[in-house]
Design a protein around this nucleic acid. Structure first.
Lengths: 190, 190
DNA sequence: GATTGACCGAAAAACAATTCCAGTCATAAG
DNA sequence: CTTATGACTGGAATTGTTTTTCGGTCAATC
């Protein structure tokens, strides 16, 4: 039985369920059915264990992007395909949702760090794709840094900030509004 | 000498400079050159005094909107005209900037309340204007609630969130990007 | 050699002592 | 008599102290 895997599994669940601060190493050991010392044969510190898990999530996201993005297709085609996959896979977002909540409520530095890392990875990908799309004449000439920043902010606004005062939006509504702002623009006409 | 005006003036400056929590009534009294008791002849509580000032700011904003919006003009015309005035008048935003900072750092409920009030007023105006513009066929058919929400989020993202990790954007950059997302859309073409 | 859980110390939570400040009111000034 | 004042009060916030919690170690066990 792969003990390391057991530990990772247990820690993953615990972090996603209780956040960084509220997960104790004793708890992880118990869930994983291992002595606490065993954890420390695989991971030097709680923080390293956490990083490993966060990196796992980031890798999953990267692989989604890699899988869905095809440079022979249109920029918006790729964008909405990735968006779809992200909106679909709540499971791996579970951790991120908990962390952003923890960040709001307690301001745990580790959760802040983790969120920033994830955001930067996504931001980097979008930026590159925007550059490529501009070069290919698919997008207007614009500042990729600012535009990718705005795209991520829009995504966050629609998927989580909106929910603070309203009923959550459906995946279709989210996609439609991103399309409205990014692709078409608000102005009527053609 | 109008004592009430003196108090409002002093409190205004103090709230804008130190935030809600860090202004004391003794301080306000001192700045206003009044005894502390005098303040309580005009205002029942510190919170009421604060509300009065916040309402003043909201009124100023409303009057800017009233002054700049002309329903004979195009929606975007009016939008950018108001935007211009808002970006220009940092002074009255001073208080709001301080309050959002206080909200971030300490989470003072009064500053949260104030920010929410301001946001709702703006949101309401934009929503109405969007409805009108849709009815006139100037804008695509869309959900005014969601779209006004996104517009405000975009404004906040560009004017304050961006500054956390980057050099502040110029007024022109901010307007250009709002135009890019709202009016034109990102897609190249014509 | 691998695994464990009792153990350690540092860091956080809980609690107590102290300071601070919104709001009052007896007194003073006009 | 009316209006203004600032010393005073009590409860809330802050600071200082004790207790508990938990990340990490390591001698004992398998």
């Amino acid at each position: 039985m792969d003990r390391k895997k057991q530990v990772l599994e247990a820690a993953s669940r615990s972090f996603a369920l209780f956040g960084y601060k509220a997960t104790t190493m004793d708890q992880v050991a118990k869930i994983a059915n291992v002595g606490k010392g065993t954890i420390y044969t695989f991971f030097d510190t709680k923080e390293q264990l956490f990083d490993e898990i966060v990196n796992g999530v980031i890798s999953e996201m990267k692989s989604i992007i890699l899988r869905e993005v095809d440079h022979d297709r249109k920029f918006f085609d790729n964008l909405f395909r990735v968006l779809d996959s992200f909106l679909e896979f709540r499971s791996e977002h579970e951790l991120l949702i908990k962390l952003s909540q923890e960040l709001r409520d307690v301001g745990t530095p580790q959760s802040q760090e983790a969120m920033a890392q994830v955001e930067n990875v996504i931001l980097g990908y979008i930026e590159k794709e925007i550059e490529r799309a501009i070069a290919r004449g698919e997008l207007r000439d614009c500042d990729p840094k600012i535009v990718s920043f705005l795209m991520v902010k829009m995504y966050i606004a629609l998927t989580s900030e909106w929910n603070k005062n309203h009923e959550p939006l459906s995946k279709e509504q989210i996609k439609e509004h991103i399309r409205l702002f990014l692709e078409n623009g608000l102005a009527a006409n053609a």
